[in-house]
């Protein structure tokens, strides 16, 4: 929306002037500090949130308080991000370092024999999430403590924990950029990218379950992309996708469709064992199977789009919303607690 385009500039000016006013006193309808904070933390039930928004829409005082909370939160996030920038991402060091790397690559390219095949584009391989029919590109379990291979590193969308996990459209943009990258750049940056993705995998909710054996992970980065989910022994595979699609591939290669019971897009999954698998998707969709065959819908703590899940059993699960909230359950979804 910004910058203001010429056609809408007069209306923008009018809107700014029309909406300028001073805050009034608190009214009986105004929310108290804790309610405003709970709204900001997304701790309120949907019905109460909607009721409050009807008031917030026209109450400058409440808007100001919520705006203040948002400013403080963004300021804190920016401060955390700035303090956490590793040395190779600080421009004063990165630019000379990149220049040196580029010079070395040019030297290698000049010296390389003409008939040598170019190496694979590791960045493109990481970004791709198509599930091939015969040989799936298997993402490594997010819980694996060792550095994942570049070709099978999990995608940012499912594993970026918080405070601001990238949305699916950001991931789509990142994928486009990755695919457009030239091979030499991919070779130079491939190792860095895999390290970055691995760091993103260390989410608080997921690291809590990281030590559990058999944890699996899946990832999705776009509406048209299918996600594959493996248990630790990789004896079976589930493929999930749009409109509630769930397919299972057995060890003998047999592929069959399973009834999910939902029509929402499914985006991520985790399978701690061959008979247990959890799947999450849009609009708070959570599915679970405990026999590897039949799926049940699990009541979700939110109707937000869900982007990630990690599970250590049929009972212990953590889910991540598109807004970055993490909920966990230890009773198979009967109750959820925000982390």
């Amino acid at each position: 929306m910004t910058p203001v385009d010429r056609d809408n500039e007069p209306l923008d000016t009018v809107l700014r002037r029309a909406m300028r006013a001073h805050p009034g006193p608190a009214t009986p309808e105004c929310a108290d500090a804790e309610t405003l904070a709970a709204y900001s933390d997304r701790s309120l039930a949907a019905a109460e949130r909607e009721r409050l928004e009807t008031h917030f829409a026209d109450c400058m005082r409440c808007q100001l308080v919520l705006a203040g909370i948002a400013r403080a939160d963004e300021s804190a996030r920016d401060a955390r991000a700035a303090s956490g920038i590793p040395w190779y991402r600080r421009w004063r060091i990165a630019i000379p370092a990149l220049a040196a790397v580029a010079a070395i690559l040019v030297f290698i390219a000049i010296r390389r024999p003409a008939n040598e095949e170019p190496q694979s584009n590791e960045v493109v391989a990481m970004a791709k999430r198509e599930a091939p029919a015969v040989e799936p590109a298997a993402p490594e379990p997010a819980a694996a403590p060792e550095m994942p291979e570049a070709a099978s590193a999990p995608a940012p969308a499912a594993l970026a924990p918080a405070p601001a996990p990238p949305a699916s459209n950001e991931i789509a943009m990142n994928e486009t950029k990755a695919q457009a990258a030239a091979a030499p750049r991919a070779q130079a940056m491939g190792a860095f990218s895999s390290q970055t993705l691995h760091r993103q995998a260390t989410a608080p909710a997921m690291s809590a379950l990281a030590g559990a054996p058999g944890a699996g992970a899946g990832a999705a980065i776009g509406g048209e992309v299918r996600v594959t989910i493996f248990p630790p022994d990789r004896s079976v595979m589930w493929i999930i996708g749009k409109n509630g699609m769930v397919q299972r591939r057995d060890a003998d290669g047999t592929m069959r469709v399973q009834q999910s019971g939902v029509s929402t897009d499914l985006v991520a999954g985790a399978s701690p064992s061959v008979s247990v698998c959890w799947i999450v998707g849009r609009s708070g969709t959570i599915l679970r199977t405990t026999d590897g065959e039949h799926w049940e819908v699990i009541g979700a703590p939110t109707t937000e789009n869900l982007t990630a899940v990690s599970a250590s059993s049929a009972h212990d699960v953590a889910i991540t919303t598109a807004g970055g909230r993490i909920f966990a359950t230890s009773d198979g979804g009967a109750t959820w607690h925000q982390q």
């Binding site: 500090a33 804790e34 405003l36 904070a37 900001s40 701790s43 309120l44 909370i69």
Partner: peptide
Amino acid sequence: RSSILTWMRAV
């Protein structure tokens, strides 16, 4: 009802 940090920010 909220985190204590968000509550402080609201106050």
